[in-house]
Simulated scan of single mutants.
Amino acid sequence: MVNVPFLANSEPAAVRRPAFAIAHSSGAASGGTGSLGGLAAAAGNLLGQGGDDFWLSHTLEIAVQTGPLPFVNSACITFAAADAPDIALQDAVTISLGYADAAPEAVFTGSVTRQVRTLAGLTHLYASDGGGRLARQRLNQSYAAQNAGDIVRDLASQAGVETDVIESGLSLPFYALASTTPLQAQIAALARRSGYWAYFTPAGKLTFAPVSEGETVQTFTYGTDVLKLEITEAAPALDGVQVSGEGAAGSQGQDAWNWLVADATGVQAQAGSGEAQRWASDGALRSQDAARTAATARASAAASVQLTGELWVPGAPQVAVGRQIAIAAAPENFLNGNYQVERVCHRLSKSRGFVTRLSLLKTASVPLGALAALGGLL
């Protein structure tokens, strides 16, 4: 683990004053038309006065935490309760963060789940996004001849969750849900089998897709906007995976998903090789293609994650889960490069300013098909 301190003797960046906006819509989260009541998206200087806007005048702290499912995104707004507007559970809330020299960007869209009032005259308002809705719902349900994306779309629709990009994922001749597992964990399991990430965007929409390298949304430079950086390099937890499914859909057609087979090799697949092997049985995999996809996804995830880390920076509202950032000019070249963002924690307060903590992954360019084709880890 390497710690990189902030260089106090470097040329400081221009001073930026944190700003925020809170939009509260009564009843919108429960299907009503909602009324913004003058509280919508009135951005203001965190350190200044809010004028007639309640949130700008009374908010003391905002904390937002986001990550891929099964993690449920959450937000907490702490404010002085005097003359507070009427806020009900399930009311919609959107939080935007940024700076006074630019319009704040939405970092969280969800609904109120809890309010805590104190004798000190403060209220802590908690909210979650669509992940919270999924976490509250459990179903006993089955699907025939669907792909993972089709199932995710249906679950999101039943939970009243909006969707963004939903890709197909692996094909499932038959798939059953049990009420012992909440829907956000069911979707996370489908994502792992497909080699995807499932997460909510700042606009509160569900994404189910592979994480691509893409374009970096922001570069953080040592000595300018890196407050603290910790990078850990570790050997992969496993060298290879063998996955066994059930049924004979691969060799006997989709209608044979429920057949018992004397020889299970038709629904088995292996990816990678070495001493640290893992074996997994998954009854949801009813064909060799599905078993191969799941095995390759597991092995690729273990092999491709070379570095993990935590990065603290001045507030970065444009950075979100699934996006890519870059680190530059660190004294050790080992620390520089592009990283995938896995978790984001924003904290903005009148006493401590605006800081963002990012959980990062650095991945190698290992195509999913390469592991299965070569039979070993790269």
Score class of each variant (00 low, 15 high):
F208A: 09
P18M: 00
G98T: 06
A135G: 04
S287T: 13
F108G: 00
T113N: 14
L122T: 10
N336H: 03
L377C: 12
H124G: 01
W197S: 15
A82M: 11
S349W: 13
A303S: 02
Y143D: 10
A373Y: 05
A330H: 13
T118F: 11
L348N: 00
T118L: 13
D86G: 13
A302G: 14
L229E: 01
A135M: 04
A364P: 00
A43G: 10
S349R: 09
V72P: 07
F6L: 06
S74N: 14
T219C: 00
G38E: 12
C345Y: 02
V15H: 14
Q268K: 06
F200A: 00
E61K: 13
K362R: 12
L238F: 14
P173S: 10
Q137I: 09
V344M: 08
F174G: 01
R153D: 08
L183D: 01
T78H: 02
V72D: 10
K228E: 13
V93E: 07
W257Q: 02
L260R: 00
E167T: 15
A372Q: 09
R286H: 08
S142D: 15
A144I: 05
Y199W: 14
T363M: 10
A373D: 11
V355Y: 05
Y99E: 02
P314Y: 13
N258P: 08
T181C: 11
R292C: 08
N338I: 05
G67T: 07
P182F: 09
L360E: 08
L285H: 14
P18R: 00
G31F: 14
R298G: 01
G315V: 00
T59I: 09
S365F: 09
N258R: 03
A148I: 11
V2K: 11
L46Y: 00
G169D: 06
G353K: 08
T356I: 03
N336G: 03
E61V: 07
I77P: 04
S273D: 11
F6Y: 10
L358V: 06
T363N: 11
R343H: 04
A264M: 14
V241L: 13
A75T: 08
T78C: 15
W279V: 11
P331F: 12
V15C: 02
A299G: 13
A301G: 08
A41K: 15
D263E: 12
L371F: 02
A198V: 15
Q184G: 02
L348R: 01
S57Q: 07
V313A: 04
A189Q: 14
G110T: 04
T232I: 13
S74C: 10
Q254N: 09
V226A: 01
Q158W: 10
Q268D: 07
F54C: 04
S168E: 14
T224G: 02
S111P: 00
